[in-house]
Simulated assay, not measured.
Amino acid sequence: MAGIEVVVHVPQESGEDLDELLDVTGWLRDEFLALDVQDVRPVQATTAPDGAKGVGAIAGWLAVQLASVEGVRAVIELARGWAGQRRREVEITIGGDTLKLSGASAGEQERIIDAWIARHAPGS
């Protein structure tokens, strides 16, 4: 089975400079590497996702490689906890389908996450 690539985007906050965003994204990358993932790397300018404008804009983007869809939930849960602790928004994308983690109650987020993961399960 081919691996799954999950793209994680940490949007730059108002007043945050590029170095701060790189630091924050680096900390999140380190946390992802502690999970059962194949690789976590910054998105390169040559493969920048839709919506990324300029080199500075891709500073908050990470590509997480997973062996299977089962690891997606762990990535989402880590990102959700990380975003909640820091009061930041995090976006997770698979194949152009983006899940935004912020602003919803825990129960609402859980339902949204379940439906989003179901769309990416084998056979869906």
Rank of each mutant, 00 (worst) to 15 (best):
A2R: 11
I4D: 06
E5Q: 04
V8P: 09
V10I: 15
S14M: 07
S14Y: 03
D19F: 00
E20R: 02
E20S: 09
L22G: 10
D23L: 15
V24A: 14
V24S: 11
T25F: 04
T25V: 13
L28N: 10
L33G: 07
L33N: 12
D36E: 10
D36L: 06
V37Y: 04
Q38Y: 08
D39C: 10
D39F: 02
D39I: 04
T46W: 04
A52L: 01
G56E: 01
L62F: 02
V64F: 13
V64A: 01
L66N: 06
L66Y: 03
V72L: 07
R73V: 07
A74F: 04
I76Y: 01
G81M: 07
W82T: 09
G84Y: 01
Q85S: 13
R86P: 04
V90Q: 03
I92L: 15
T93Y: 05
I94H: 13
G96H: 12
L99Y: 05
K100W: 00
G103T: 12
S105Y: 03
A106R: 15
G107Q: 12
I112L: 14
I112W: 07
I113S: 13
I113C: 14
A115R: 08
W116T: 15
I117F: 02
A118R: 10
A118W: 01
A121L: 15
A121E: 15
